[in-house]
């Protein structure tokens, strides 16, 4: 085969387009970073490299202080409250998400599915912490506000995931059941529920893992659980107490994650 084409004539046709995209993104990002570095005070009291002694106060000293040991039961009690808030919130959210999820699923909700989708999108768009603040302000501080915030927020994510599960169910079975003369209730009990239950449970467990973390955080705005004593100790710079609480939190979260992941693996 003889050279058919002068290679010097080959030019990258998209070269200009790449160039402009590159320039555009660079200018945009430079602007963002310029604002970030000029408008935000990033100065600090201590350097990150002096963290050693503090980390020792967090994660080493507390193990040798009897007065901290005495407080461990209190911390565990507070952490259990956090775990309970997450549990009550996730469970009620998971139940309430079922009707909303069915409404939002295109194959069940039909023309009305946009209502369900709208509710779910609105809930998810609203940051969880804002829910918590509104609930703390309206029903008062404490775990009850936390359960409300977690429950409502879980509906957003779970409802969306449920709707996706429902949209993927095998409609064949339902048509077959209809053809055998099954009633509406029978169709639901034999045709729909068995198909979706395992996924629903798995997602609810997954959400529970997230909610245990969230309810730790929500305590900080007054929604009950371990967050409140944590912030109290942090404000008075009692780092040994904070450190012990962190240990309790991390251990609990890890244990719950392990159990939940294991159950989830078995379900699906």
């Amino acid at each position: 085969m003889k050279p058919s084409l002068d290679i010097r004539t080959i030019k990258n046709p998209k070269r200009m387009k790449y160039w402009w995209t590159f320039v555009g993104i660079t200018i945009f990002m430079t602007l963002l970073y310029y604002v970030a570095f000029t408008q935000t005070n990033l100065s600090t009291r201590n350097s990150i490299w002096d963290a050693g002694p503090l980390l020792k106060r967090f994660f080493w000293d507390p193990f040798f202080m009897p007065e901290i040991h005495d407080k461990i039961p209190t911390y565990i009690h507070a952490m259990l409250e956090t775990v309970a808030i997450a549990y009550a919130g996730t469970l009620i959210g998971a139940v309430l998400a079922i009707p909303v999820g069915f409404l939002a699923a295109a194959n069940i909700g039909g023309h009305f599915s946009f209502i369900g989708k709208g509710i779910l999108n609105a809930v998810r768009a609203f940051p969880e912490i804002l829910f918590a603040i509104i609930f703390v302000a309206s029903v008062g501080m404490g775990p009850y506000a936390g359960v409300l915030a977690i429950g409502i927020n879980s509906i957003g994510m779970l409802g969306k995931l449920y709707a996706e599960v429902i949209e993927s169910i095998d409609m064949e079975i339902i048509h077959t059941l209809k053809a055998t003369g099954a009633s509406k209730i029978q169709i639901w009990v034999f045709g729909v529920i068995p198909q979706v239950i395992p996924e629903f449970c798995s997602y609810a467990l997954y959400r529970y893992e997230i909610d245990v973390r969230s309810s730790t955080v929500l305590g900080i705005v007054g929604a009950g659980g371990v967050g409140a004593p944590l912030i109290l100790a942090a404000n008075s710079r009692k780092w040994e107490e904070v450190g012990m609480m962190l240990v309790v939190i991390i251990l609990t979260v890890t244990i719950i994650d392990l159990i939940s992941t294991n159950i989830r693996k078995r379900i699906v």
């Binding site: 009291r45 201590n46 980390l55 967090f58 973390r213 730790t216 962190l246 939190i249 979260v253």
Partner: peptide, 14 residues
Amino acid sequence: IPDMILAVMFVAIV
């Protein structure tokens, strides 16, 4: 480690 816990730690550190 939840995000807020990291925040508490870094406030203590820096």
